[in-house]
Design a protein around this nucleic acid. Sequence first.
RNA 1: GGGCGCUUAGCUCAGUUGGUUAGAGCACUUCCUUUACACGGAAGGGGUCAGGGGUUCGAGUCCCUUAGCGCCCACCA
Length: 895
Amino acid sequence: MTQPELPKAYNFKSTEPRVYEKWEHGGYFQPWNDPNKPGFDPNIEPFVISIPPPNVTGELHLGHAMFVSMEDLMIRYHRMKGIPTLWVPGTDHAGIATQLMVERDLLKTEEVTREELGREEFVKRTWEWKKKYGGIITTQIRRLGASCDWNRERFTLDEGLSRSVREAFVRLYEKGLIYRGPRLINWSPGLKTAVSDLEVEYSEEEATLYYFKYKLQDSEEFIPVATIRPETILGDTAVAVHPDDERYKKYIGSRAIVPILNREIPVIADDYVSMEFGTGALKITPGHDPNDYAIAQRHNLPIISVLDTAAKVNDNGGPYQGQDRFEARKNMWADMKKAGLVIKTEPYRTTIPRSQRGGEIVEPMISTQWFVTIEPLAQAALEAVRDGRIKIVPERFEKVYFNWLENIKDWCISRQLWWGHRIPVWYCPDGHMTTGREDPTQCATCGSTELHQDEDVLDTWFSSGLWPFSTLGWPDKTPDLKYFYPTSYMETGYDILFFWVARMIMMGLEFTGEAPFHTVYLHGLIRDEHGRKMSKTYGNVIDPLIVMDDFGTDALRFTLLVGSSPGNDMSLSVKKVEANRNFANKIWNVGRFVITAINNQQSVDEMGDYGLADSWIWAKLQQLMRDVERQFQNFQYGQAGQQIYDFIWNDFADWYIEIAKQELAAGGPTAARAVDTLARVLDTALRLLHPFTPFVTEELWDHLRTAVRNSPLFTLAADWPDALIVAKWPEPNEPESWEEQKMADFEEVMQQPVRALRNFHAEKNIKPSQKHGVVYVHPYKAEILREYLPIISALSSTDVEQSFVYEQYKPEEAVTSLVVGATEMYLMLTGMKRSEEDMARLEKELKEAESHIERLEKLLAGDFAKKAPAHLVAKEREKLTAYKETAEKIKAQLR
RNA sequence: GGGCGCUUAGCUCAGUUGGUUAGAGCACUUCCUUUACACGGAAGGGGUCAGGGGUUCGAGUCCCUUAGCGCCCACCA
């Protein structure tokens, strides 16, 4: 009958794993309307999110915590609305990151490099690594409470998804949108692979600008040139000047001599050269600079590569062959100095391109790579956002999106790695290319059977781009794909808008003909408590796992959800999480109180009408439901959470429960009504809060359900569901006008006098033991005041025996008086002497009232009365009347 | 060079159709070991909402402008 006593403090450590276990194994995360099961109804529209797949070898960080919290909130909310809800989980093979990790490990444990192992063996080892460590991240994501359907978990390299990648590649190839050729690309010498433009990060750094002489052939004259990378002189194929430059005009068409190598190159004229910058003359190294490459194209210049894949000087570099690029730079400059070609060096701040992964300086190089012709895909992707098929939240990112797509360049998709989707193209000895959905056995052009496959793998983002539909079975027309695609929201950080979101849109439109989702919700980045980026070197990284250990998952989730707004970075401090741990504990204790009250409550024959406080808290709750619903529609999740927090703490706990204590003590129908309200409000509050803090709400709801079931007071029409996760999202069921009235009454009759009295006690340092009476005067709410006098007295620590309520003001009874706000209420304390301070305070009150009167009269005399909406004007009028009455009463006292 | 964001209480931040004399958490002051909770309760101090101008009966909220900070994109050696 009675439950075991609940602990005083919420124990998240024992609760969280148990509750998650119940959910996962109870099948609560699977959509109730499943196309693969009997009874499926295709007419009900589902709500679907594809998880941004974390790196399979990754460790949980706050970025994960953020998107999991956010998406789980969205998913739980929709699920509680009764919508079939699917959240597809999975992981990404993360080509470079994973390969590096395994390489590092092999070197450490077996002292063997990947080259020594060979490709086949290395890939085998990486799969083993994946099997061993790939589960860590998904376990950690479970710890966050993620309610994804783990039965549908996917991995970008598993069979189905690899087939999608193959299909996508072949389709683009056949359409002529994929090509292979030598181009100037970004080369990462550390990783020895090409990287895309997006994978290059530019950082402003101190560098040196080297000025030197470009000697002219058969002449003592020279053109001064400046460069940041002297070693690239080895690859120069021209010196360029502006055609209108008076200084150098005369040299155009003559020959210059490459220092050290003594090659002859032309002096050319090109508008690109800026006369104002540097020396006004530019050395042209088409093999290692994108601008120079473009100029070389225009002038038909030869292209010389001087660096190999490790960024060492190659055999075009004469004496420097075999030297590292920086070593060669030093040596070359020294040699030039000896040769008298050096003018000067000066420190120079410039942007240096670095690899996003390895961090080393990226070298532009000519290399044969695979590219996607991006223009047509980008056009379609632009159109989808422009015409509203896809909406980006917050909207300002649409501009960023447009700007990127409008200026996009072809996408280099080949990587010289081993871990990834191998490019499905085969070459015959004559170099003909053959592709296909199945591995070819002979060359499509010449029939040769001597085929070898391209060595490169695809950019990881190529497979990620297919994620929303590849995870649902594409290219097969699976029931899942048919029902759950297109997905609903794409929720992720704005930092991968280009990397991932834009590419999903392009590929989704290209391959499925539909936008892969209708809404993109972008969250901000998480920074430390002073807004600094978290970094390991700085040592300000907050580990979500430790935070969860210390304060619980709910506390972390609530902090992330309430502390952030769409698209804006948030600062996270452990203090905030601690405060929200306290909130979880508060909820727990509210629940404890309610459940105890239910367990102690006997049945009654007749419940009777609800009281003022019951109606008030119910009205507050109705309003909350409306507000929360509205905020959710507008993606204002933080606001919604804040309001629920305020309701539970400031309204329900601080006021209603304190009042309920009095009513419970009274027993009978009064107590029964209080218990009924306590249970109903808690039930609803838990539902509203559940998407934010799923664990504590679930646990409490379970206890509440048991208590209600066993209570003689309640007869349940329908059984409660077994888990809050499938409970119904609450909808308000009272008219808004009703709410207003109830709230106004309660605030006036209960809250205002209680607050005023407490305030008075604190100011005058009156101890609760010094009980005194109060005379309440209210012209037309005397009756209700009389009814609730015991409660008001209890909450304000005043003596109910010595207290009275009048309709009429009787100054002769006043001993000490205080006035309550802008209402008709007037309070007088009895059994006390009036002091000088009281008079001073009354004068202060009077002044305040008069200032209000003055302000309001001015306001109402102006255009406000004519132009503002009628109900607002009426409200201000009422206030004016009330202040006037208040002023009168104080004046009477002061006489 | 283009684009975007931020600037609100000591600190970190909310504040979306413009509507009382602007809020929260933490910190601070005073009081309270009251039978849900000291991971608590009560009361309180603290802001010319970055500066200037404009629209409006009314502006933290809309427009223009200035300054500081930050981010993204971009080929100036």
